[in-house]
Structures are given as C-alpha cells and as structure tokens.
C-alpha cells in the first residue's frame, strides 16, 4: 500500500533528522506496545495469583460473592448475571432507539432536521458517563419512584434506561454507516416498482445493511458491558441477585469500582478478586467487541465483491 516497499525510497539519508526518525518512531511503537503488554501482564499475574488460592471451578460455578465477609466466598455468577442483565436492559432501550434514529436520519429527515439531530447525537457521545450517572441517580430514579412507589433507591431500571441512552450515539453512528453503504439504486428500484418508502426501507434497505447493523449492536453492547459509573451510581452495590428491575444489583464493574482496591494490601484475596473480576469483564466485552469487528470486516469484504 505505502511507498515503504518501493525500491530505493528513502534509501538516501541526508540529515540527522533522517537518520534519527526511524529509530525514534520505532521507539514510540515499542513504548506503546510495551506499556499495553505490561498492563495486560500485571493483570494476568495478579489474576493468576488469585486463582492459585481460589479454585477457578468454584469461582465460575458458585453463586455467592462476599469478598469482605469473615469467610469470603468468591462465586462470580451473581456479578456476571447482573452485568448481563444491565447490558440486555440497556440494549432493549438503546438499540431500537438508536437504530430507528439512524433510519430516520438516513431515509426520512430533511436536511435541517438531519443536521440538528446529528449534532445532538454527537453531543450525547461527548457526555462523560459520570454525568450520565448523576442524571440517573438524581433525576431518573426519583421520576421512577414517583411512577412506581415500590422502586428502590438503587434500581436496575434507572441504570438500564440511562446506559441505553449512552449507547444510542454508538448505534446511530455505526448503523448509519451501514445504511449509507447500501446502493441508492435499491431505494429507487423499490419505489419504481410501486412499493411505499416504508416498505422499501423495512424489506430491502435494512436487510441489505443487516450485517453492519448487527455489528453496530455488538460494539454498542460491548460499551454497555464495560460501563461503570452509571451502574455504580444508579444500580448500587447489592449482592443479592434479583430479577426485579426495580431492585438494585451489583455488576462486575460496580464491584471493581466500589471495592476500593487502592486500600487493599497487594497479594490479599480482596485485591486479587478485583483482578479476577477484571479478567472476566475483559473476556465478556472483548468477546462482544471481537464479534462486532468480525462482522464489520466481513461486511467490508462482502461489499467489495
């Protein structure tokens, strides 16, 4: 692709800058890769130390997570279930809203509305998650409690709604790109055949972009899995697993953020548990992210045909 392989390109090195540039840039790459490898390394080492003391089988099969109890138990299932619940709940709100917004912007909105709403999604993408968390706890939760008086102060529904709002810009941005890549002739052909605009969109254009849309959903859900501040503030830190959206729960991220590992001595089980939970979180979100990236790359290859 680049000139790098052209014969003789850059062969003549004149000044000092020319001789230094290559090594300095290589050093940058080594530093970048080295830092990230080191970060992954310490994570692996600490998690490994934890699993040397706590059986991985029990870690993944027991449903009791009480790291600070007299006799601590480390069964990660409740945290994992809570993370899955919040992610699914956020998906229920965020994915349809984002997808429909993308369809509206791409196929219905006038130029002005389109520009204004695109700006709104860009601004939503720039709001820090802790500000969303503040909004969830101080606005959405009181609103829910006035609707359903039985709602707990920390509840999953508030977190799901606001995490759903947070992932909307990701869904809109990526699924719009997928919709854009569908040839305009398909719309014209469909309309010429006498189908209504809505029918063409629903039966032709969205199915044609489906690969990219599914990828967008996966990438957005990967963000929801790793979301920390909203769930910590709104859903709380409740150890008991629950199916009620009006009760609180504790996700992997909420445990990591609230366990205060900075205060735990290195090598203690409580310190190690944070690294083990991080490793599980990493596997969860990377799985979704990798699935999304795979679908994006497959779509790109398919589009080149």
């Amino acid at each position: 692709m680049t000139v790098a392989r052209l014969p003789g390109a850059g062969a003549a090195s004149h000044g000092l800058a020319d001789r230094l540039a290559g090594p300095v840039l290589l050093a940058c790459t080594v530093a970048a890769a080295g830092t990230l490898v080191a970060l992954a390394g310490v994570l692996g080492v600490e998690a490994g130390r934890f699993f040397a003391q706590v059986s991985p089988v029990r870690f993944f099969t027991e449903a009791d997570w009480t790291p600070f109890a007299e006799e601590p138990r480390f069964g990660v299932l409740p945290l994992l279930a809570a993370t899955a619940q919040i992610t699914a709940g956020a998906g229920v709100f965020g994915v349809p809203a984002g997808l429909m917004t993308a369809v509206y912007l791409e196929h219905y909105a006038g130029a002005r509305t389109e520009r204004a709403l695109t700006a709104v999604t860009a601004l939503l993408a720039g709001v820090p998650t802790v500000v969303y968390g503040c909004f969830a706890l101080d606005f959405v939760t009181p609103a829910l409690r006035s609707l359903w008086p039985g709602t707990e102060a920390f509840n999953a529904l508030s977190a799901c709604l606001v995490v759903g709002l947070m992932i909307v810009p990701t869904v809109v941005l990526l699924s719009r790109a997928a919709l854009k890549s569908v040839p305009a002739q398909l719309m014209e052909a469909g309309l010429a055949l006498g189908a209504s605009r809505g029918r063409v969109v629903a039966r032709v254009l969205v199915p044609a972009a489906l690969g990219g849309i599914v990828a967008a959903v996966f990438l957005a859900l990967a963000r929801a899995v790793g979301e920390t501040m909203i769930v910590t503030l709104a859903a709380g830190n409740q150890a008991q697993p629950t199916w009620s959206p009006l009760e609180g729960l504790r996700t992997l991220t909420a445990f990591i953020a609230q366990s205060g590992p900075g205060g735990a001595p290195s090598g203690s089980l409580q310190y190690g548990a944070v690294f083990a939970a991080s490793a599980v979180l990493l596997a969860f979100s990377w799985g979704l992210h990798a699935a999304g990236m795979f679908l994006v790359s497959r779509r790109r290859r398919g589009g080149a045909r």
């Binding site: 990438l219 790793g226 990591i256 991080s278 992210h289």
Partner: peptide, 9 residues
C-alpha cells in the same frame, strides 16, 4: 474495546 475501568485496575 477494553472497558476503561480495567485500565484503572
């Protein structure tokens, strides 16, 4: 695709 909180850990 790594959650920010993991960088903290």
């Amino acid at each position: 695709g790594t959650p920010p909180v993991v960088y903290g850990v």
